[in-house]
Design a protein around this nucleic acid. Structure first.
Length: 523
RNA sequence: GCCGCCGUAGCUCAGUUGGUUAGAGCGCUGGAUUGUGGUUCCAGAGGUCAAGGGUUCGAAUCUCUUCGGUGGUACCA
C-alpha cells in the first residue's frame, strides 16, 4: 500500500473498547431478553442523550475545564443564559441576561438522566404548585446504553465506557414495587439464560444500619458514609480488617497504610457484633427477620427498615418466591450514598478458571435500591423512586467465561467471484437469496478472479460462512451453480483426511432455480 | 493517587558475568493444488529490542527519566 510517510498514530483511548461481533451478540441477547421482562411489568422504553448539563447530573461539579472527579466534563462551546434556583434567568445590573458556557458531562449512569427527565416534565407544573406533596405522578421506564466514568486506575473488567440496563419507577413509595424489583431481576436473569442457582439476589435496607448507627451516636452524614463504606468491604477484608479500619487503621499486604476512622472500641464492637450475627451463609429470610427484630432494639428508623423487609418478604412469598434466589443480608451496603431504603445487589455464584488456573468470580452483576431523594435534589419536590440496573458488560463477560454463551455470530452465505463479467448474475442470485431471508454476501475483496478462489473460500471459512456458492463459465453453460457446504466441511474435517473425498462430500451442483430451497435446506 | 513487577516480530514468548548479520511457535504472504476453505509439506516477508538521555571501544542486556502494561491498595456520586 502506498501512502504518506507518516500519519496519525492510530490508538484507542485507554479504558474504551471495540466490541466485536461475538461480544455484541451476547450484549444484545442480554438487552433483548431483559427488556422483554421489563416491558411485561409495564416499563416503557426511554432514551436520553449521552450528554447532560453537569449540574443536572448530580452534586459533583467540575471546577476546571478538565475531566474532574470521575466524570468526563467540558465546557459547552455555545453560550446560554444562566438560571437561578427559582427558574428565572439571572440578570446583571443593566438588566441584561447573564450568559455563560455551561459545563456538560457524559452521563455516568442512567439514573441521574431519569431524574432530569422526570424533573423537567414536572417543572412547570411544580412551579405553579399544581403537584401536591406526596402525589408525584408515577413514571416507569427502562433504558439501556453506554455510561462513562473517568477511572484513574482501571481494574480488570472495569472500563471507562460500559453499558447499563436499568428499570426504575418514579413516584411510588409502595414497598411492593421494591419487591417487584427482585422479581424482575430474577426473571430477567433467567430469561437471559442463567439458572436460578447461578445467582443470588441480596436485599438489605439502609434504614436498619442507619438506625443502628444513630443508636451509637453517629449523626453526621459523612461519618455514616465512611462507616458504611468500610462495612461494605467485609467480604474483601474480613472481620479483622473492618475492625481495624473502623478503629486504628491497618497496613495491607503491600505495606500501604490505610488510616482508620478512630471509632472507640465499644462502638466498633456494636457494629461488628451486629454484622457478625448474619455472617452464616444464607439463613432463610424468615430467620434473618427474626434475628433482626431481636437485635435492632427500639430505634424507630431501624424498625421501619425491618418492617419494609417484612413487606418485601410477604410480597415475594405471595408470588411463590419462597426461599431461593432472594436473600436478606443485613451487611449489604452498596457504595452509592443516595439510597434511602431497600437496596439490592445480585451476586453471581458461578466461578471460572482463568488462564493461570486460579479460580475467580465476577462478583456483582446487578445493583439497585430505593432513592427517595434524588429527584428532590433537582426539583425541590419529593418524588420517591426505586429500581435496579444490570451491568451488561459484566454479565456478558461472565457468560463468556462460564460458557453460558459463546457469542454465536450468524454469518452470511458467500457468493465467490470467479469471473468479474458474471457480476450481474451474482447480484441477481444474492438478491434472490436475501429476499428469501438468507443473509448473503458477494466477495468484493481485492483481486477476485480465477486464481484467488482459494482466498475467497478461506475468507468464508474464517468468517464462519455456512455455505459458499461458485458460479463460473462451466456452471453458466449448464444452468447450474456449485454449492459448497462449509458447515458440513468443518464438521467432518477431523474424520476425512483425503482432500478429494472431503470435496466430494461437501460440494454439489444444483440447478439455478432450485438454489434457494437447497441453500435453505443446509442452513 | 501510593507500592511492586514488567515492556524483544501482528500474537505468545526465548535471548545477561555487556561482544560480530536478535531467535522460536502461532499468524501473515507465496507455492505444492493451472477454479476449490480444514489437514500436510516447502519457501518468504516482517524488529530504530517502548521512547529519550547517561555509562562504555561496544548496550535488548547496566543507569536515569518519561510513557505504556500488569498485580496489590485507595477512591468510585
Amino acid at each position: 500500500m502506498e501512502g504518506k510517510e507518516r500519519g496519525v498514530v492510530p490508538r484507542k483511548i485507554k479504558g474504551f473498547r471495540d466490541i466485536n461481533a461475538s461480544l455484541n451478540s451476547i450484549r444484545w441477547h442480554i438487552i433483548e431478553s431483559a427488556s422483554k421482562v421489563y416491558r411485561s411489568y409495564g416499563f416503557e422504553h426511554l432514551d436520553t442523550p449521552i450528554l447532560e448539563y453537569a449540574d443536572a447530573l448530580g452534586k459533583y461539579m467540575p471546577d476546571s475545564d478538565t475531566v474532574d472527579r470521575g466524570v468526563y466534563s467540558f465546557k459547552n462551546p455555545e453560550i446560554e443564559p444562566v438560571y437561578q434556583a427559582n427558574g428565572r434567568e439571572l440578570r446583571d445590573q443593566d438588566n441584561k441576561v447573564v450568559m455563560d458556557n455551561h459545563f456538560l458531562s457524559l452521563r455516568y449512569d442512567l439514573t441521574a438522566p431519569l431524574s432530569r427527565v422526570y424533573a423537567e416534565r414536572m417543572w412547570t407544573r411544580h412551579l405553579k404548585g399544581a403537584i401536591h406533596p406526596g402525589k408525584a405522578p408515577l413514571f416507569r421506564r427502562y433504558q439501556f446504553g453506554p455510561v462513562f466514568r473517568f477511572e484513574t486506575k482501571l481494574d480488570p473488567g472495569r472500563f471507562r465506557e460500559f453499558w447499563q440496563l436499568d428499570f426504575d419507577s418514579v413516584g411510588s413509595n409502595n414497598i411492593a414495587s421494591d419487591a417487584e424489583v427482585c422479581m424482575i431481576l430474577s426473571e430477567a436473569l433467567q430469561a437471559i439464560g442463567l439458572d436460578k442457582t447461578d445467582f443470588r439476589i441480596k436485599v438489605n435496607n439502609r434504614k436498619i444500619l442507619k438506625g443502628l448507627l444513630l443508636d451509637i451516636g453517629v449523626e453526621k452524614e459523612e461519618e455514616e458514609q465512611a462507616i458504611l463504606r468500610i462495612v461494605d468491604k467485609l467480604d474483601k477484608i474480613g472481620r479483622a480488617g473492618v475492625e481495624a479500619e473502623l478503629g486504628k487503621g491497618r497496613k495491607d499486604k503491600s505495606g500501604a497504610v490505610i488510616p482508620g476512622l478512630g471509632l472507640d472500641p465499644s462502638r466498633t464492637n456494636r457494629i461488628i457484633g451486629f454484622i457478625e450475627t448474619f455472617a452464616e451463609l444464607n439463613p432463610s429470610r424468615t430467620e434473618v427477620l427474626e434475628e433482626l427484630s431481636s437485635k435492632i432494639g427500639n430505634n424507630e428508623i431501624s424498625k421501619a427498615g425491618l418492617e419494609e423487609l417484612e413487606q418485601i418478604d410477604r410480597v415475594l412469598k405471595n408470588v411463590g418466591m419462597n426461599g431461593d434466589v432472594v436473600y436478606f443480608t443485613p451487611s449489604l451496603v452498596r457504595g452509592m450514598a443516595y439510597y434511602t431504603g431497600p437496596i439490592f445487589e445480585v451476586e453471581s455464584t458461578q466461578s471460572y478458571t482463568d488462564e493461570k488456573g486460579i479460580e475467580r468470580r465476577v462478583g456483582s452483576i446487578c445493583g439497585g435500591g430505593r432513592y427517595d431523594g434524588l429527584v428532590e435534589n433537582l426539583l425541590g419536590l419529593k418524588a420517591p423512586a426505586s429500581g435496579a440496573s444490570i451491568g451488561v458488560d459484566r454479565l456478558a463477560e461472565l457468560m463468556m467465561l462460564t460458557g453460558k454463551s459463546k457469542g454465536d455470530v450468524v454469518s452470511p452465505v458467500l457468493i465467490t467471484v470467479l469471473d468479474q463479467e458474471l457480476m450481474p448474475e451474482y447480484q441477481k442470485i444474492a438478491a434472490q437469496l436475501r429476499r428469501s431471508g438468507v443473509d448473503t454476501e458477494i466477495y468484493y475483496g481485492p483481486n477476485p478472479g480465477f486464481k484467488k478462489l482459494k482466498k475467497q473460500l478461506s475468507y468464508a471459512d474464517k468468517k464462519g460462512c455456512p455455505v459458499a456458492l461458485m458460479l463460473g463459465g462451466n456452471e453458466l453453460e449448464k444452468g447450474v451453480i456449485t454449492v459448497r457446504n462449509l458447515k458440513l466441511g468443518s464438521e467432518i474435517a477431523d474424520t476425512v483426511t483425503d482432500k478429494g473425498e472431503w470435496r466430494r462430500l461437501t460440494q454439489s451442483e444444483v440447478n439455478l432455480k432450485d438454489l434457494v430451497t437447497h441453500v435453505n435446506s443446509i442452513l
